[in-house]
Write a protein that binds this DNA or RNA. Sequence first.
DNA 1: CGGTTGACCAAGT
DNA 2: GACTTGGCCAACC
Length: 103
Amino acid sequence: MKKSFNEQCYEILRKVPKGKVTTYKAIAEKLNSKAYRQVGRAMNKNPCGFLSGGNVPCHRVVGSNGKLVGFAHGLKKKEEMLKEEGVSIINGKVDLGKYKFEL
DNA sequence: CGGTTGACCAAGT
DNA sequence: GACTTGGCCAACC
């Protein structure tokens, strides 16, 4: 039984440990696709889970260059949350060299 | 089933 | 350095 692309994104996102981040691109590539947009769209369309009791840290997902892109609550909130997790945000960007989680 | 869309990305202007 | 264009692919209408 194959899950939808979106659900697979959640699965991968769930694997990201606290204090680490990943990129939309990486996730899409892991799914053997280039549907970067589909990953982000999945988050927006669905309740992100983590707010509803699920464990889908959508805030741990950043852009391809560690740059914060989009977030339903606002990028500002996203930065705050990441900082709480131990990820330093510099100029609205994350240091992927230190915080990017290798899937 | 065809067309629009989207929390992207890379390159061009 | 900021904005525009094209491309990618799955989900949604």
